[in-house]
Amino acid sequence: LRQRHVACLARSERGLGFSIAGGKGSTPYRAGDAGIFVSRIAEGGAAHRAGTLQVGDRVLSINGVDVTEARHDHAVSLLTAASPTIALLLEREAGGP
């Protein structure tokens, strides 16, 4: 079961505080899956403080732009754009009992 949710992050002077992996033109985060995933969350960064991202979340869109088939460098450029806030649509595998 997959759950979707939106995370809104305000960029700090240190950026957004998370890294992505995967996407076309880069090493897959999961074998056989060209999706883009949250690969790291920086301690004390914007994403960590927001508490809405988890490592392993699939990134579906960035500020309304679909990145499900995107190249890695395109997703990075969307994240590093000048916008002071970033809205992410994420998909998470629902774990637990």
Rank of each mutant, 00 (worst) to 15 (best):
P97V: 12
G45M: 08
H74G: 05
F37L: 01
I41V: 11
G51V: 02
D66T: 05
A21V: 13
C8E: 12
F18Y: 02
A94N: 13
D57S: 01
V38S: 02
S77R: 14
D33K: 11
Y29F: 10
K24E: 12
G45R: 05
A81P: 06
E91V: 02
H72A: 09
G15D: 09
H5C: 10
S26T: 11
F37R: 03
A46H: 07
A21R: 09
S12Y: 08
S12A: 11
R92G: 03
L9Q: 01
I36A: 01
P28Y: 09
D66K: 04
G22T: 00
G15F: 03
A10I: 11
R30L: 12
V59H: 03
A75W: 03
S61Y: 08
G45T: 10
A81H: 10
A81Y: 09
T52A: 10
G44T: 09
A94F: 13
E43R: 10
G17Y: 02
S26E: 10
E93S: 08
G23V: 00
P84G: 15
A81K: 13
P97C: 13
D66C: 06
T52Q: 15
T80A: 14
A21L: 08
V67I: 09
A21N: 06
L78N: 02
T85C: 13
Q54M: 12
F37G: 00
S83E: 15
E13N: 12
L88H: 01
L90Y: 04
A94Q: 14
T85D: 10
A7R: 01
R71C: 11
S61I: 05
G96V: 12
A70E: 07
A31D: 15
G17I: 00
T68L: 04
L53A: 04
I62N: 04
G51F: 01
A87M: 15
G23Q: 01
G32T: 07
V59G: 03
S26F: 06
L9P: 02
S12E: 15
A82L: 08
G23M: 01
V67E: 00
A70I: 07
A42F: 14
L88N: 01
E13R: 09
G22E: 03
A7M: 07
V65Y: 09
L90A: 04
L79W: 04
G95C: 12
R4C: 06
R49D: 13
R49Y: 11
H74A: 12
A94Y: 12
I36R: 03
E13I: 06
F37W: 04
L88F: 03
I20W: 00
V6K: 15
V55S: 03
G51R: 07
H5F: 15
E93P: 12
V6R: 09
L88T: 00
C8V: 14
A82W: 08
V67D: 01
E69S: 12
E91P: 00
R4F: 05
G22F: 02
G32H: 12
G96A: 13
L53Y: 03
S39M: 05
L9D: 03
T52I: 11
G35E: 00
Y29I: 04
L1T: 12
A47C: 08
D33W: 08
T68I: 05
I20N: 02
K24P: 03
S61C: 09
G22N: 01
G17W: 04
S77W: 09
R14D: 12
I41S: 00
G22Y: 02
S61G: 09
